[in-house]
Structures are given as structure tokens and as C-alpha cells.
């Protein structure tokens, strides 16, 4: 069966990352870059899943999958970020998020730890950031030797729509 690790599920609606009230992020790696998704938005982390392709769908959509009786739309985040497909054979990982009452599974390279970030390390998007990335990023955290880009999940999903 599928490897399913439940990270944490929370339903706190008041949560808002922009004002820095949230500090916990699930880190993921895509193309070597570290990204963070606010932990409270994460519903589930999935391993390899069988995905049904949806014909005529935007290229960033990998298809649909069945997650315990709910239909989840799988999104290839690499394509959203305009990255080349991953080379070699890897085990596919995905993070399930809920947006507007619907579930989306974000297919990414690797899932890392949950990190506790300090507000003082937060910065807005650098002006020179790739416009595509800027559009779907909430800002960045400076870490030792690394930069954590915070994904704006709603915008990421919207960007596919258009």
C-alpha cells in the first residue's frame, strides 16, 4: 500500500502567515531549492500514488487520484516553477493541501523536516526574484547557508488556472 504519513492536520482559520504569526513550515525540496509550506495548510504527505491523467488539462496538472474516497488533483510543482522535469528515477512524493474546499496534491522532489522559523529572519521577496517564483512566493526566510522560500499555496493553484 501507499506510504502515508500524516504530519499534522489543523483547522485554524485565523492563521495568517503574512503577519508572521505562523512560524512552523514543512520544508520541501524542489530542484535543490528549499521551500516551505505553512504547516497548518498541510493535510497529508503521500508517497507514490497512482494518478489518472486528465486529458486536455493544463500541463502542470498531473491528474487526479483517490485519497480515501476524495478526489485529489495532483499538481506538478516543478512545472509551475518552470523547472525541467526531474532526471533519473525517483520516488515521487507529494504534499496534500486544501484550497477552497478542494484537495490538491503537490508533487515535489523531497519532503524534509518541519522547521520553526523566527520572524526576524523573514524578508519580503527580493526584487530580483524570478517573476514566476515571485508570484507564488510569500517571502523568504534566511537560514544558515540556505534560503527558505515560502510557497503561497492559493496563488500557486491560481497560477495553473490561468
Amino acid at each position: 500500500m501507499n506510504q502515508t504519513t500524516t504530519v499534522e492536520v489543523a483547522n485554524d482559520d485565523d492563521y495568517d502567515v503574512e503577519y508572521g504569526t505562523a512560524k512552523e513550515f514543512l520544508t520541501i525540496t524542489i530542484g535543490g531549492q528549499l521551500f516551505g509550506i505553512p504547516v497548518l495548510q498541510v493535510e497529508d504527505v503521500l508517497g507514490e500514488q497512482s494518478v489518472t491523467e486528465v486529458p486536455l488539462s493544463p500541463p502542470a496538472i498531473s491528474g487526479s487520484l483517490n485519497l480515501r474516497g476524495r478526489i485529489v488533483t495532483a499538481i506538478n510543482v516543478r512545472k509551475c516553477l518552470h523547472l525541467e522535469p526531474r532526471e533519473g528515477k525517483h520516488k515521487q512524493m507529494s504534499v496534500v493541501v486544501e484550497q477552497g474546499g478542494e484537495l490538491y496534491s503537490l508533487i515535489i522532489d523531497e519532503v524534509g523536516d518541519v522547521l520553526n522559523m523566527n520572524n526576524k529572519d523573514f524578508e519580503n521577496n527580493p526584487a530580483t526574484l524570478d517573476p514566476v517564483w515571485k508570484n507564488i512566493s510569500l517571502g523568504i526566510y534566511k537560514m544558515d547557508g540556505q534560503i527558505l522560500v515560502i510557497l503561497d499555496v492559493p496563488k500557486l493553484i491560481d497560477s495553473i488556472h490561468n
Binding site: 489518472t52 486528465v54 488539462s57 493544463p58 483517490n66 478526489i71 478542494e102 488556472h161
Partner: peptide, 24 residues
């Protein structure tokens, strides 16, 4: 169907079959 797939006119919905797979 998911909001981001609504524009595809060919599908009126999706469903899960008895074997657990999703089909349009």
C-alpha cells in the same frame, strides 16, 4: 471536477470506480 479543471468542457465530473481508480 476540481475548480482548476472546470474549463474543460468534455467532462461533467469525475468519480471513483469500484477498484479505487479515479476516472473522468
Amino acid at each position: 471536477v476540481s475548480k482548476i479543471l472546470k474549463d474543460i468542457e468534455m467532462f461533467s465530473g469525475n468519480t471513483i470506480l469500484g477498484d479505487g481508480s479515479v476516472i473522468m
